[in-house]
Structures are given as C-alpha cells and as structure tokens.
Design a protein around this nucleic acid. Structure first.
Lengths: 203, 203
DNA sequence: ACAACAAAGTGCGTGCACGCAAATTTGCGC
DNA sequence: GCGCAAATTTGCGTGCACGCACTTTGTTGT
C-alpha cells in the first residue's frame, strides 16, 4: 500500500471515499435546508449524492448523522490540533477550554436548523462523543498518563454536552430562569468545574 | 389524582405500569439466557410478557434496553441514595467513589451475557447516562451549586463509562497489555482523576 | 500488461422503532 | 352502579439500519 510521508493515504480509493462522504453530508444539508429536515428521506440523500441507499449506511449510521456531520465538519480533529498546538507554558486547563470555545464558535449559524427537530438535537449532542478520542490523544501528549488522559477527555466531552444541552433548551421545565447565555459563556461555565482535575493531572 | 405523601403514586394505574415494565425486562432476560441474545425477537418478549409488540416500545426504545434494564435494575437510584446517605464528614469524592463501586459490584454474574453481543455491550454502556440526573441531584444536595453538580455528575458518569469499556475489552488492539483488572479497581482508577474536581467543588 | 487480490458499492431480506388514530381500560365524581 | 374523561394499549403503515452474498473497481506483485 502506497502512503504519503505522513499517515495520509494518497490512493485513488481513499480520495474517492472521502469525496463520497463529503457528497453525502453536503447533499443531506442542502436537502434539509430546502425541504425541512422531516421531508428528507435517506433515499433522496443517496440519490442526490449518486450512490445507492445501501451505501449511505456504509458511511453514516443514521439519517441525522449526515446532516450534523455537515455542520460539525471536522471539529473534533481541530479541537485536538488546537490543544496540541498550544505552547507548553499555557496551563492544560486553559489550553483545553480555549480550544473548545474557539472551535465551537459557529461562523455559519446552523442553530436554527438543529433546534428544529428533536432527532437532530440528539444527533448533534451525540457528536460530543467524537471529540473524546482525538482529545484524549492531545491531552496524553501533555501528561504522560494515557489512562488519565482518556478519563479527562471523557469528562470534558461530557461537560461540553451539558453546555450544549443548556444552550438548546429555551427553558427548563416550570418557570425556572435557567439563563441561556451565549454558547461560549455556557462552555466556559460548564468546563470550569473540571479545571481542578485538569490542573492536578498536568501539575 | 391521588398521591401518597411522597411523590409515589398509589393508583392501580401506576402499579400496573411498573408491573408491565418488570414483566417485560424479566421476560427479556429469561429468553436471552435460554436462547442466546441473538435468537430473541422483540415479538417474543412481548408475547412472553402478555402485551402487544407495539406496547413493548412504549416501555423500552430498543430491543436491548429491556435486557440491560433487567441487569442494572435500579442501580441509578441506589447510587444517588448511597451518596445522599453518606454522612457529611466524609468527603464528596469518597462518597461518590464508594457509592459507585458498591453499586457496580455485581452479585449475580451477568458479565457473560453482556459481553456476548456487541449491541448488548453498547446498550449496557449507555446505562451510565441514566445515573447522571439522580447523581446530579445527590451532589447538588452537598454543594449548593446545581449547575456545577450537573457537570460533575456528567463527568463521573463519563468516567464510569470509560471504566466499563476497559472492563469489557479483553485486549486493546495490537499486543498492548491494558491489564483489565477487577471492575472495582477499574472504577476507582477511572474516578481518581476527577477527585480534585469533586474536592474543589465541595471545599 | 495481466492476473490475483482486496476493498468499496449494491440489492435484497429481515427486524425494528415510532407516529398516528381507533379501541380498551382505569380513575373518579355523582 | 354509572358514565365521562384521561390514560394506556393496540394495529397499522412507513422509514430505517444492517447482515449477507454478489458485483464492480482500485491495487499490487510478477
């Protein structure tokens, strides 16, 4: 198997695969915008991407995943990269928090699309799990304990999920205020309680 | 609607509902043991519990949930109760860790059944999310910040999930040792990195 | 260039989750 | 007891995820 100097595979196969992946998620996003998320069948997405319906499920394992994948793109790798690129004199807690906040600051406003449908909300919240492994790798590079890094990454991902839940809920249940501030603020607030754990592991 | 002095509903309706729930999960567990998890259709479970197949999905939203629900029973409420019952002179971190370890010490050995099928493994790992809300309540009773409690509970749940993943994986991928110790040990190890966060919130 | 091989795409069949609306059961005041 | 309103159960239809076997398409060694 021919490979580039870094782990990236240069073969036509792999390029075609990524192209199909991208075609699928972009088709999904476009159709969801046009018709509304509920009026898009999985067959439509597959047809728009020029593949069979069965192939769709070789790439995405639920109808909603393609849509949220188009929105979140490659957020997970960029979070990990941002942590890895942070100079060592910045504390681990700061590195992680800033990386998260930066990557979750949404340039294009996809919030409207996501909040529309409950199933999309859930799929979107599920994406927090994806950052877990890359982030664990980035943290492990700064502390020398891979197991601890894994737990911390999982904790961070969980905190991010909590922040996103608060952001997506207009109101709690009964009259309680639950000030839904800006997403960056919510993220910082949710990550705050984990700072001691990150600092302790890095110290 | 008539209610007891505590939140519990005394009506026949609610009792029947819980009875159905229990009948379903016990039927699911029994059939899974008898035939093996893959040879149990959702219709069989419903029939064994004396309800229609459609009703099954009014109680459990996936085929595997009933089985794991039978195994985990009401672990989540007992974890929360254990934390709440811990005397205040015990640190929050100790209270949480011991409560988790105690409730995840499995009297009946269901490990064999769970590890058999990938889908069951996933469903079992999914149950960690259920302890999140009760645990958040119990933690919130000890620190006066509900938002922080929520994040900490989510972090703890995530750590438990990591521990369970390690427990269920015989080996990593390539030759790496990854000593899969006893579950209590794995739980303590996974929760260790979060202690600073718990202590900081309690202090 | 060509053959052998591996990997991705496809069609089909099965089981499943869930929305919806009709039928049944339960709780409660009379 | 009686009947009404609400909650629960049920049947049905639809869309979906995925295992499996097979075809198509890159890739690799000679």
């Amino acid at each position: 198997m021919k490979r580039g100097m870094l782990g990236t595979v240069t073969g036509l196969r792999e390029r075609k695969k990524q192209a199909t992946r991208e075609a699928l998620r972009e088709a999904a996003l476009r159709l969801a915008r046009e018709r509304g998320p509920d009026n898009v069948r999985v067959d439509d997405i597959a047809a728009a991407a020029g593949v069979s319906p069965r192939t769709y499920n070789n790439y995405y394992s639920s109808r909603e995943q393609a849509i949220v994948a188009a929105v979140t793109a490659e957020r997970e790798t960029r979070v990990a990269a941002a942590v890895a690129a942070t100079p060592p004199d910045v504390g681990l807690a700061d590195a992680v928090v800033e990386a998260i906040v930066a990557q979750y600051t949404d340039p294009g406003d996809h919030a409207l699309l996501i909040t529309t449908t409950p199933a999309l909300r859930d799929a979107f919240l599920g994406t927090t799990a994806v950052i877990e492994h890359p982030l664990a790798g980035a943290i492990a590079a700064r502390i020398d304990d891979a197991d601890t890094a894994r737990v911390l990454a999982a904790g961070v991902a969980a905190a991010v999920r909590v922040a996103l839940e608060r952001w997506l809920r207009p109101t709690g249940s009964a009259g309680l205020v639950t000030v839904a501030g800006s997403l960056p603020d919510l993220l910082r607030a949710a990550l705050e309680p984990l700072r001691p754990a990150l600092d302790a592991a890095a110290g």
